[in-house]
């Protein structure tokens, strides 16, 4: 029952968020600011996670492919596919759900309990649209670039690990990376990232917008936003994979 109530309220909020903005020029400015605030500031953490992720995946593949019947270049190939298909989109999205989702929920939640949202409403401003729409648009546009960065840095991490440990020949890793590269797989990862960006920002916006009470409630809203975003990411990961790849 609670799930239906949540879904209904979430859809009603989305309707409010996507209603016609007061002035496009102001929203454009806010979108650019949010790209910097939500996207650009996440570049460091995405790069850091991706380099370690790529390195670990390469090591795991190398350890599990220890058979004379499996060509070594498949380690590079498997690393690339794993990083491109799942890690750069889903794992990075889960990390961003923590960083960006909690940020959005606590920011909007604080605005709610300090009457800032009421102040916008009294002025005649559609507060849901003014606060949440720029965050959704900026994330949907910017997060795919983070996914591309993650792909690049991820395979670079694998390359560095191979070079440092000499666990298998570096040439094999490079050959693996260049084997049967499907552009559709990259498109699939980027589409997934955009969907995840939408889920993270809209769910976090929802929890923040309907926060009530005091700072404790804002903290709770922030936690709930991260948990709900993560669950939604995993569910949609499954749905999109079934729809696009299988």
């Amino acid at each position: 029952m609670k799930f239906f109530e949540f879904s209904g309220n979430y859809l009603l909020l989305l309707r409010k968020v996507f209603s016609r903005p007061e002035k496009f020029r102001i929203y454009r400015k806010r979108i650019m600011a949010e790209m910097d605030h939500l996207g650009y500031t996440s570049v460091g953490i995405v790069a850091l996670i991706s380099i370690f992720m790529g390195a670990v995946v390469t090591l795991q593949m190398a350890l599990n492919f220890e058979s004379p019947f499996i060509p070594k270049y498949l380690i590079g190939y498997a690393t690339r596919e794993t990083v491109f298909l799942e890690f750069s989109s889903t794992v990075v999205a889960l990390i961003l759900a923590g960083k960006v989702g909690s940020n959005i929920a606590s920011e909007i939640g604080t605005m709610r309990i300090t009457d800032q949202i009421d102040a916008l409403e009294v002025m005649g401003i559609n507060s849901a649209s003014y606060l949440i729409l720029p965050k959704i648009v900026s994330s949907v546009v910017f997060f795919p670039f983070l996914a591309i960065l993650s792909m690049f840095v991820g395979v670079l991490g694998g390359y560095a690990m191979t070079w440092l440990t000499e666990i298998f020949p570096l040439e094999d890793y490079v050959t693996g990376l260049r084997t049967e590269l499907k552009l559709f797989n990259i498109a699939y990862a980027l589409i997934k990232t955009s969907v995840f960006a939408f889920l993270i920002t809209s769910i976090a916006g929802f929890y923040g917008y309907y926060a009530k009470g005091n700072s404790l409630e804002v903290g709770k809203a922030s936690t709930n936003a991260v948990v709900a975003s993560c669950v939604a990411i995993l569910v949609f990961d499954l749905i999109l994979t079934k729809l696009m790849l299988v």
Partner: peptide, 27 residues
């Protein structure tokens, strides 16, 4: 309609000037 809230309810992320200019920007 203008309203003054108990805690002021100024937008934390905007300066004094931006806070006061916001309704003019939008309407």
């Amino acid at each position: 309609v203008g309203m003054i809230f108990q805690g002021g309810a100024l937008l934390d992320s905007s300066t004094v000037f931006q806070n006061v200019r916001l309704p003019l920007d939008l309407f």
